[in-house]
């Protein structure tokens, strides 16, 4: 209706802006990553950009990257999964206990953590949809305790070290290409993120997850099976948490019962820094990756500069608040100009 009063060129400029906004939404966070790379280079020019330092970053952040992408799927539906840190440790300890008992051929052990994750995710999803617990906070708070308790029970609460090389491969292996050693965990994360990007952006179920986050009632009356789709979201989140457990187990060549304490908060932080909305329906896979990198680079740079670990916590907290505040400002500007 306002269109009638615009000249064609104004209309074109406007529609160009309508087309550009999604890209700004998507790539704004990458500027933050570039800024951090610049800060790292400036403060530690001799160390930061070396392969030895950079090749550490994927390994250090692979577990959080895996947790964050699953968490993102759940947050897109306006949900939350507090249990991922405990799923990580339960997956890890189950695998370590089975490895110690030599109960399974080592190659099959690789699937154990994923299956454990799927199991807990299924429980979370059914708790939400079948038991109709009022908010995913509740059921996943329950499984946060249950899974960590189980992890301690099956392992007797003590670390188990020494895992078969098959189990360690994804978390610790390297693929030599010429002189360069590509960490397998980097490949795992790349495949995982591309897979989730295609899934969320280009499959009907992926789009339904966004629709449920936007308006579950709209999804329901459009014939989408909301309950089944939600269960799938929690299963995927559990599966990636299980994978994170496998990556940590591989990297440390052990299972230890204190793994993953507070990991759910790092994953949520990465998702939120990456621009996803806590209220669901918003955010992108690229944003999540950027969020993971922001946290990872922040820790790396602060470590290189010998900043106390407690200050890292303070700074990550500030980055979360800042990132969301910038998002609020941008949204306000966007709606004011319309």
């Amino acid at each position: 209706m306002a269109l009638a009063t615009q000249t064609p060129s104004e209309a074109r400029a406007r529609s160009l802006r309508v087309r550009l906004i999604p890209y700004i939404d998507r790539f704004g966070i990458l500027l933050l990553v570039l800024l951090m790379l610049a800060i790292g280079t400036i403060t530690q020019p001799d160390v930061f950009l070396t392969w030895r330092n950079l090749s550490n970053i994927p390994g250090q952040n692979a577990a959080n990257a895996a947790l964050a992408i699953g968490m993102f799927v759940v947050i897109v539906t306006a949900g939350i999964d507090l249990s991922v840190g405990s799923v990580l440790v339960l997956a890890m300890m189950t695998t370590a206990v089975l490895a110690r008992a030599q109960a399974l051929p080592p190659i099959l052990l690789v699937f154990v953590p994923i299956l454990v994750g799927i199991g807990v995710g299924l429980f979370n999803g059914l708790g939400l949809t079948v038991l109709r617990l009022p908010h995913p906070f509740i059921v996943t708070l329950g499984t946060l305790n249950i899974a960590r308790g189980l992890a301690n029970l099956i392992s007797g609460g003590v670390p188990i070290s020494g895992l078969p090389s098959e189990v360690r491969f994804l978390g610790n292996g390297v693929i030599p290409i010429g002189d360069v050693q590509i960490p397998v965990s980097l490949v795992v994360i790349a495949v995982l993120y591309v897979g989730f990007w295609v899934f969320l952006q280009y499959t009907r179920t992926g789009r339904h997850l966004y629709a449920i986050g936007g308006n579950p009632q709209a999804a329901r009356v459009s014939g989408i099976n909301v309950e089944r789709t939600l269960v799938l979201a929690y299963v995927l989140c559990g599966a990636t948490a299980g994978l994170a457990g496998l990556l940590v187990a591989g990297r440390t060549n052990s299972g230890f019962p204190n793994a993953g304490i507070g990991a759910e908060l790092d994953a949520i932080s990465a998702v939120i820094i990456g621009g996803a909305s806590f209220f669901g329906g918003r955010g992108s896979v690229l944003g999540v990756l950027a969020g993971v990198l922001v946290i990872g680079l922040l820790r790396n740079i602060l470590n290189l500069n010998d900043v106390q670990v407690f200050w890292q916590q303070v700074l990550i907290g500030l980055v979360i608040i800042l990132a969301v505040f910038i998002d609020v400002l941008r949204r306000r500007a966007g709606s004011a100009s319309d």
Partner: peptide, 21 residues
Amino acid sequence: YQDLALAGNMRIDENIFLGRE
């Protein structure tokens, strides 16, 4: 529906074809 049951976060075409993409 009275409350329209649209997903505000999605494009117009995605809403029109929601559930029948």
